[in-house]
Structure formats: C-alpha cells, structure tokens
Design a protein around this nucleic acid. Structure first.
Lengths: 197, 197
DNA sequence: TTTGTTTGCTAACGAGCGTTAGCAAGTATA
DNA sequence: TATACTTGCTAACGCTCGTTAGCAAACAAA
C-alpha cells in the first residue's frame, strides 16, 4: 500500500520538514531528535542523508536567495519596459517567491543569523546585492520622472519591509490567491511612488 | 573609585545585557553562562537576581508592549485632532518607542515566540489589540475622507511592517536622529495614504 | 550589636544537545 | 550472482544546557 518509490527524495523530505520546524520554533530551538520524530526516524538516521544541521539551513537560505535573483532578473530583463512597470513586476516576482514556500521564506528572512562564518557573511552580501538592485530600480525611476519619493533609501527599505512582512501573516489556504496578493501589494506600494496617480 | 551605589540595579543590568544578547543571537541561542560572562559573573550567580531565563524575556516583551500602548494613547487622545494628524503622531510615537531601545524592540518583535504558555497567547492578544487600534484609525480616516487606500487591512499591515523593520537597520550613532527618522517615515508612509497630496 | 538584604561564589544535578561508529536489511545495477 | 547505494537502527561519545543548594562576605537598618 505504501509506495515503494518516495514522492521526493529522503533528503528533500528532511529539508522540507526541517524548514517547517525552523520556521515554527526557530533554528536553535529545533532539535535533531524533534526533526527525526516528525519524519518517523531516529535522530542518528538523519545523518545517512545530511552532513549536519546547519547544512539544511544553508541549503534553504541560499536556495531561496537564488530564487529571488532569478525572478528579479526575469522581471527586469526587457530593456523597453518602463521602469515603473519593471518595478511592479519585480514586486510581484518577489511576492511570488515568498508565497511559493512561505516557510522557507520565513527561515530565509529570520534564521540566516545562525549560519556560521563564512556562510553568514556571504549570505549578507547576497542580500545586500538584492536590496541594491531594488534601490537602483527605484533611483532610476525617480531619475526619469516615472516615480517620486522623498528619500530613495527610505522608499526602498519600506518597500521591502512591507513585502517581507508577508510570510508572517500569509496562509496558503487564505481568501486571496498569491497572484491577488501580489497585485494588491504592488498596487498599494507603487501607489505611493508613482508620479501621476 | 568604583561607585558603591550602582547606576542601575543589578537586575536591570541583567535585563539590559540579556536583551542585547537576545537580539544578537536569539533567545534560544543565548546561554546563561554567556550572559553571566558578559556581566563578569558566574552563571549560578544570576539566580540571586532573577527567577529564570524566560522571566527576562517576559519582562522585556511585556514592558515594551506597555510602552507602545502608552505612546499610542497619548498620540490619539485629543478628540479635536484630525484623524490624519493622529495617525502621524501615532506613527511618530511608534518610531520613538522603537528607537528609544532598539535592542528591546527587536526582541519584542522576534523573540516573543519563545515565551511559554499562557504568556505567549497573552502577548499575541496584546499585539493584535495594538494592530487593531492602528487599523481602526486608518479605517476612520478613510470613512471621513481624510485618507484613502485600496484595502484597509493591507494598508495597516504594510504600514506597521515598514515601521517594524526599523530595528533591523537603525543605529543610534547613525546620521539621522530618531526624530528625523520618525518624521521621514511618517512622510513616506502617510504620503501614500493622504487623499490630497 | 543584631538582623536582613544584596551580592556572588563553588559544585553539582539531570537532561538534552549534535554527532559518530558500526552494523544490517533492502533495492538497483552489473 | 556480485556490487554498490540507500536507508535506518542501536548505542554511545563529549559537551552544554538551565537551574539549585549551600555557603559567605559586604553592607544597611534597627
């Protein structure tokens, strides 16, 4: 009755379950025995599939970072698109990544601090680069007159802050679909930035 | 040379130092031995002043909750003040609490999950009540035509999200004073909400 | 001078931690 | 049939955790 071929590799199952636990309790407060129990295993058995607890965290954090970069690149690829429209698509892309796996997103946003060096520094520089891409987009939008904001840095910070708050309240079984959320957030946040509104 | 009367009670010193460590490493990843070392003590000595590790977290979280409520009440007390102006003052009050002790604020925002029941539930209901106050203010502003937003709930969430991101980047020795930050944030965030702008 | 409070120490408790070694069964490939 | 990979177990390692008991010095209030 139980399928002999698992739907996902054991390693992927461990990652998923660990991500959910890391989100719910935090990385440090999640024990390998807890994780094993959740999977119906003994603690030691986990190490047939992974090298360490931190390895899981590393994979989640850097995997999601890659997702964010990919979606941003797609959203801003076309040179003929107006900046404001690029920003809208970047916002929607960001929201899409956040909603696709909100547990992993929450871990990405909050648990990276438990990475040890040099991964921690490497992660932070990726995050800075990503934020920089948004800031550059907004700055260019202001330069060409499509957007306006009293302070570019503040505008960028508040924009990303609003987006990144999403995993704290998003529920996959909620009333709004990810696309609707992405659209409303873009509406709300671009609304304060557009020159002609 | 060393003062016989400490500037703060030992208990308050423990709270302050613990708050800084909780912010930097997270509650679960901070050990009592680490905290004791930071204070030049042995681990066991801490227990002459406090009952438990969680007691410190409890004091920080609920102490700050009180601060938020107090400042909000002051900002919205005068019945003759226009709603938009009340909201501006509530925003500035919120920022004032966040900047007054950004370490405690970060703990308040992120470490409350490590409170055990029933404190955890109690804390969450306080937080919900506070968010509800902001939502009610915005809703009233929309009702009387001073504000506009496509979605009240979204407007509230993005507003508070932007504000609560502050402890992540605020540095007391930065270029901007807390008042300047409060003013700019209010400007930026009200800008998207005001009807006539 | 007595009493109580504040402060801090040493030593240890039971428990849980992440991780490893060694073994074994099942499955897939050759 | 032989080989190798996947999967999982038991048992234990050294270590750290939060916390407690018991003692003692310093100091303030009576």
């Amino acid at each position: 009755m139980t399928p002999t071929v698992p739907l996902r590799s054991r390693k992927a199952q461990i990652d998923r379950t660990a991500t959910a636990l890391f989100r719910a309790r935090g990385f440090a407060a999640t024990s390998m025995r807890e994780l094993a129990t959740e999977l119906g295993l003994e603690a030691g058995s986990l190490y047939s599939h992974i090298k360490s607890k931190e390895e899981i965290l590393h994979r989640v954090c850097f995997g999601l970072a890659e997702d964010f970069f990919t979606d941003f690149a797609v959203a801003t690829a076309d040179a003929s698109t107006p900046v404001a429209e690029k920003l809208r698509q970047a916002i929607e892309g960001h929201v899409r990544v956040l909603t696709r796996d909100s547990a992993a997103s929450a871990v990405f946003l909050h648990e990276w601090r438990h990475l040890s060096e040099p991964a921690r520094t490497e992660f932070l520089s990726l995050r800075d680069r990503y934020e920089g891409s948004f800031r550059a987009l907004i700055a260019r939008g202001i330069a060409v007159g499509e957007l306006h904001a009293p302070d570019t840095a503040f505008a960028t910070l508040t924009l990303l802050a609003s987006l990144n708050w999403l995993p704290s309240w998003y529920r996959p079984d909620g009333k709004l679909t990810p696309d609707e959320i992405a659209h409303r957030l873009a509406e709300q946040l671009l609304g304060g930035l557009l020159t002609n509104k």
